[in-house]
Amino acid sequence: MWIYEKKLQYPVRVYSTNPALAQMIIEQFGGADGELSAGIRYLTQRWTMPTNQAKAILTDIGTEELAHWEIIGTIVWKLVKDATIDQIKGTPFEAHYVNHGKSPYPHDASGVPWTAAFINSKGDPIADLHENMAAEQKARATYEWLINVSDDPGVIDALRFLREREIVHFQRFGEALRIVQEELDRKKYY
């Protein structure tokens, strides 16, 4: 089961009001390679994954991704919470605002709503672990593009943290793949 701890994983600071930037950051809130996708993807794959190590990694990284989803939602909210209507009008966030007000909503930067079609769970552990490694690289790349378009130092700092987490997660899924491959080889011969 899941327990909530009343704290963010990272101390988020946002120094500016910027609805246009918020609309871009929301890509990681509800987009295909975002944190919600990552969390749901890994937690979904748990049931058919062999080896205790891999089940643990899917559980723990999946849980961490939900904590990242919370960070992204926080960044989006802090960027718009003090925005006036004039600051919102004429930005890509205006379309979000007329539907959802200032509340973060899981769609991507273009407004495409989150869907399970963004994730894969094949029930095949080798396919699933490769899917996860690819997902971590895509998330890492997305954070680099977001860092490129951001101009708020607090936002950039949080994005750098989240990007580094993707690199560590890639390493762990790579290790899990080695462990699962080893296990499947072993079962083949004995």
Binding site: Q9, N52, Q53, A56, I57, D60, I61, E64, V168, H169, R172, E175, A176, I179
Partner: peptide
Amino acid sequence: VETNLYLDTHP
């Protein structure tokens, strides 16, 4: 969290 993830693959 970091030691947790490391230990998951290096028990």
